[in-house]
Design a protein around this nucleic acid. Structure first.
Lengths: 137, 137
DNA sequence: CTTAGTGCAAACTGTTTGCAGAGGG
DNA sequence: CCCTCTGCAAACAGTTTGCACTAAG
């Protein structure tokens, strides 16, 4: 029941923290492999699961796509790019939403909420502009 | 380029509308099979995709799990049950969130947002109470 | 020592795709 | 008649799991 601190776990956690990004399991796997070439993807998945269950990292399950993990566990919201799928933090005043004031006719007991913005990130917008003299999509 | 109204498409749409629920592709497949036993799951997926691209139905990509489809296309928010995964509409005043006022240091052009509540639905709470004298999980 | 964690391969789930034939407009 | 749509099977992506071995505490 008690969580051991293995070298794999340590590196995975450190890489996620140092990245300052919202990485997927396989992005993290690619990074960790550089220091630990024999690590397996399954180990990365297992550790991310364990760490997020322990509340040491956050798991982001955004919009039906790949899960992403977040070294920042304090409550905050996200925005993702419809084009390149990257996810960034967004500054949104969570006081605006009061879960207690929300009507739920189905009798839910509300335990939390997430605000998820979507849009096009600046680098994707730049790429669009560049090729705006050929195909239109 | 033009969308034909096939009998498959018609039944899928009607079943979704009549259900007044947020069904997954395979839930819909099970329902449609009763009227059209030879329909394939791929057809259901393809039609749901086509219909949602045409704006006739909505696609719900909630929290990393299975996609769900919604016959109601006007902008509204959802709540899902952490236990049984069901998804319901929730009455939330979308005027409270002003995307234009949200800070995005990464230079996103924001095109939309979703508020996603989570909790335990009434029937799952009832089930919990019933078995509250045996195992603790 | 004990038992949680690992690497590997194989399984699994949800979804997409190539293809040849069917049927809507 | 054309071309979108279908059913089927096979492929695919992301994730999980069974197993025998390894290593943390």
């Amino acid at each position: 029941m008690h969580m051991r601190m293995t070298s794999q776990r340590e590196i995975i956690l450190k890489e996620l923290q140092d990245s300052h990004q919202h990485l997927t399991a396989d992005e993290l796997y690619e990074r960790v492999k550089k220091f630990m070439p024999r690590i397996s993807l399954a180990t990365v998945y297992r550790n991310l699961e364990t760490l997020s269950e322990a509340g040491i990292i956050g798991k982001l399950e955004i919009s039906g796509r790949q899960k992403r993990f977040d070294a920042d566990v304090h409550p905050h919201d996200h925005i993702f790019c419809l084009q390149c799928q990257r996810v960034d933090n967004i500054e949104f005043d969570r006081n605006l939403v009061n879960p207690a004031a929300v009507a739920s006719d189905k009798g839910y007991r509300i335990t939390g909420y997430r605000v998820e913005f979507k849009g096009i990130c600046s680098s994707c917008r730049n790429n669009q502009e560049k090729k705006r003299d050929g195909d239109e999509q």
